[in-house]
Design a protein around this nucleic acid. Structure first.
Lengths: 125, 125
DNA sequence: GTTCCTTTTGCGAATGATTCGCAAAATCAA
DNA sequence: TTGATTTTGCGAATCATTCGCAAAAGGAAC
């Protein structure tokens, strides 16, 4: 494990929230080139040390977010106003996906689920 | 409703599968400029006549897919091999999302769920 | 159907996230 | 330490998507 990969992994592990490449870059400071951040994220994802999902929000456009693969697989809520993520807890859709596999004959290897709306702090504003 | 918007809407309504902007363009022929396809898709989505989700696949990168908003809200499976979509049926996660709202205090206005893997035809290949 | 005003379109340039090419630097194995 | 392999930095390239702006189209009241 190289210095850059190690650092990116530690950043994701410690984050507690999904991070986009730019977020990781900021936290890494001038440790390495931005391109290396992207390459490190791919490297970690290939090995199951990270997972990602692509979120589209009106304000920030389309960005890929990464979370540590060390924590239990979980889902996230994205606030359309403050753009913070809220942890929705461990994945609860596996049984539904099993049913869908049975119904359709597909073999599901991964899934993406996230929700958007307003967090409790932004709700009344 | 202008000619371009009308055409894009009809294309989505008739597709039976999610389409990316390029797919819509191909089906529209030389009816209008590509930029107008994008603008029409936005227009339709704003008015609830279409919905979209962003899918990242190794082979085609990150693309935004659109489906008609006229059909019941449903979820899709994306085959990692043939890149076709399989309809997973009407949305079954609403109750889970309600629970998540109760647990966390967020207000969910929309959600994205899709699965990836191998379709039945590609499974053994 | 003309006039004036608003909206939409075409076209080309710009954007922004991400990826690539390639030579230099770092790692690894023997 | 040496030679082979992998990774990095840096700048250029890519790809989907968006913008700016002037021309074209649509709409509403005469």
């Amino acid at each position: 494990m190289t210095k850059a990969r190690q650092a990116v992994q530690e950043i994701l592990d410690a984050a507690g929230t999904p991070l986009c490449a730019l977020d990781v870059e900021e936290r890494a400071g001038s440790l390495c080139d931005p391109a290396t951040i992207y390459r490190s994220l791919h490297y970690l994802e290939e090995r199951g040390l990270a997972e990602s999902f692509v979120l589209h929000c009106e304000a920030h456009g389309t960005e890929r977010y990464y979370v540590s693969g060390k924590a239990q697989h979980r889902h996230w809520f994205h606030c359309e106003r403050c753009h913070r993520f809220v942890d929705l807890g461990a994945c609860r859709v596996e049984p539904i996906l099993r049913d869908m596999e049975d119904d359709t004959g597909v073999t599901i290897r991964s899934h993406t689920l996230y929700a958007s709306g307003f967090c409790s702090a932004c709700r009344g504003l």
